[in-house]
Design a protein around this nucleic acid. Structure first.
Lengths: 144, 144
DNA sequence: TTATATTTTAATAACGATTATTATTAATTT
DNA sequence: AAATTAATAATAATCGTTATTAAAATATAA
């Protein structure tokens, strides 16, 4: 969640040029909790950058991921989702409506366990939970 | 990890027909720890079922998943992987060689935490770890 | 056991997310 | 401000997966 100035510095430091599109894509990710995929980002920016193509989205999220500004999520859909919140947290997906939410909780104990149970040098982790969100739970009660 | 007789029973009970292809695909998954994707399964069975097509693999793993015999993994590659071990366990992927291993450990504490931190009704979860496997660690030491 | 109804298979085409290509345009450097 | 270099946008290509359909195999019942 850096401001444009910091992002500009970081891009330059890593040898990438700074463009309005790149800042816009990063900002779009900062200003949502919906964990959008490429198409969602595209649709959101379309009114402001009508000439921008999906390929630019893909290339940009690639770069943002490479320089550690975003996380790539893989909840089991056909498309990837992107998250500007790179702090250690898990995600939970509603199997009914498809929304993806954050779970802010500490997984340090889990991580310690993993080191004990494997000979890997662990760099990164990704926790996904699947269930029914409260809204969809309410809908089901109403329907029955 | 059921034997063919049990699988046959289960398929029939769920309204699916039993075919040699289905049993072969399930057995192939039972007899490996490599968490293969569709193409790997296809290549493995090719010598024994030379006329079988990839579409059959996809349709079959879909059915096997539907009746709860296998788990679908999504480690961030372009293809899905499949696992006949449906017991609660995590997976760890080597970012260097791409192999995927099991981590047999208990995540019940984690799951309890999640219920506390979210209003979801949690059904299912999937934990992925990423790092360097011991073989690739050794290679790196040698190379340096 | 055999015929029949129904599903599955296999081959092919279609689909859709992502990536590659390339001419044009824009950002950086001097 | 010009030159250099990289990024954008448009398009086509790629590839995993899904849909379609005729032919083959399975299950059911006589």
């Amino acid at each position: 969640m850096l401001d444009n100035q910091k992002v500009t510095e970081l891009l330059r430091k890593k040898g990438f040029k700074v463009t309005p599109q790149r800042l816009a894509i990063y900002n779009a990710l900062c200003n949502t909790k919906a964990h959008p995929n490429a198409e969602m980002i595209f649709n959101k920016l379309q009114p402001y950058y009508p000439t921008m193509s999906l390929a630019t989205i893909y290339k940009t999220v690639d770069i943002l991921h490479e320089i550690g500004l975003i996380t790539i999520l893989n909840v089991g859909e056909d498309a990837f989702r992107y998250d500007a919140n790179t702090s250690s947290h898990a995600h939970i997906c509603c199997t009914s409506c498809g929304r993806v939410d954050d779970i802010m909780m500490d997984f340090n104990e889990c991580l310690g366990e993993v080191s004990k149970h494997s000979s890997y040098d662990v760099h990164r982790h990704q926790f996904y939970f699947y269930g029914t969100c409260s809204e969809c739970q309410a809908k089901k009660v109403k329907a029955s």
